[in-house]
Nucleic acid binder design. Structure first.
Lengths: 233, 233
DNA sequence: GTCACATTAATTGTCGACACATTGGATTTA
DNA sequence: TAAATCCAATGTGTCGACAATTAATGTGAC
């Protein structure tokens, strides 16, 4: 069950459709990260002309899923640890600010809707130990609505329209759903509480800590992995 | 004298050249804000095919200078007050974070180079009362180098590659160089001091206040303008 | 005179072909 | 054998034309 992106423009043109297909293919690793993109090959695969494919490629570049170099070609971005950490830092800045403004700008209805959502998450979490569902869909959903709640079009476009897909890609490629699930849930609760108290300053601080904690959790896991592999060799 | 953008890819293809020309034309208002873009007309004007023009348009869209709708066309973004304030808020978040990391990641040489730059600014400022030069080029230059100093490619791309041109556009269109010049200079000094002290937390706070002060200054000017115009009517 | 509908004109999306740049391998030379 | 040069093959950039959609104009009915 995907969270539908309200920022995305309606899919009417064929380039739109191919863009969507390729987006999923890249995010889910079907088109491998770091791989070179052959325009003639892909155009044939999707049964479209190169012009249309290039239009789709331009949009993929817009959300940082591929990189283009003049006269050389396009490559799918590769998921490095440095890139992941940089992405978290960027999210910390942007989502923190979004959260601060959400505290000022969200309507009472929006807040109530999020409270209901967290209750649903809590039940789903209790049902299936929650790790998978919560970390994948629920977490993104929560963050997503906070960002929309900022009512700041610039922030919304940047995060939801551009960075969002990259975040999903990293989640898929690194396949991380950690033991932080239940702690993350509590943090969500506190963030929403700060918002419903209209305390923007606290809301921003909590959101930043929430994202930073997630980043540090990953850094730690990476460090452990390194320790293990070097111990084996 | 323009600040050359290290993030921009080398200009080799004709689409690159047209992109650059149009970028300047839009930023400086030669192509008016909010105006519709006619592909056949512009293609003829630049003596290129529509395909090449569309390639240029795609890049303009990437840095938020134009907006496209399927089957309808492209429009230059229009500069609204809301848009300006949203942009400042986004900058506050991103540049604040960049500044924090610059405090950790800038080399001693980079810091020394910035200190020298501020000395130069100070002299230019003393020479010509500084308002114009400082607010236009110098201020951007300072912020620019801080961002680069974060050594965070994600942040650099977002701010310098995308938002930067929009910031310049707003400056041109609203033509704002306020009496904040000398105060802003002092703030720059303090920020750089925090960085050279490797105090990331303070550096971020100062940068955020610096940008927020600039935003509030504009909000106040707008409020005064409204008061004046309504008094006249 | 105004609204609704149909027809025409103009604009955008898509296509296939050509021009140019880059890459890889074969040939020549030191 | 190694390095440099040339040539062919592949891939990207650009072009002009056609198809599909939207906007504009004109016509008729009320």
């Amino acid at each position: 069950m995907y969270i539908d992106n309200p920022t995305k423009q309606a899919i009417v043109t064929t380039a739109d459709k191919v863009f969507e297909k390729m987006q999923h293919a890249i995010v889910e690793g079907e088109i491998p990260a770091g791989s070179k993109i052959s325009e003639p090959e892909l155009a044939k695969h999707y049964q479209i002309s190169r012009s249309t494919l290039r239009e789709a490629l331009n949009r993929l570049e817009k959300c940082h899923l591929i990189e283009r170099k003049a006269n050389i070609g396009s490559r799918v971005v590769d998921c490095t640890i440095e890139g992941l950490l940089e992405l978290y830092i960027t999210r910390e800045a942007l989502e923190g600010m979004a959260c601060r403004h959400a505290a000022f700008n969200m309507t009472d209805e929006e807040i109530a809707s999020m409270q209901q959502m967290l209750i649903n998450h809590s039940q789903a979490k209790a049902l299936q130990e929650g790790v998978a569902y919560y970390q994948e869909e629920g977490d993104l959903d929560f963050h997503y609505k906070i960002i929309l709640g900022s009512h700041n079009q610039q922030l919304i476009n940047l995060i939801c329209g551009q960075l969002y897909h990259l975040v999903r890609m990293y989640r898929f490629q690194f396949g991380m759903q950690s033991a932080r699930a239940s702690r993350a849930y509590d943090e969500h609760l506190h963030i929403l509480q700060a918002i419903s108290d209209r305390d923007g300053e606290l809301a921003e601080m909590l959101m930043r800590r929430h994202i930073a904690a997630s980043r540090k959790n990953i850094e730690q896991k990476i460090a452990e992995q390194k320790l293990n592999t070097s111990a084996k060799n």
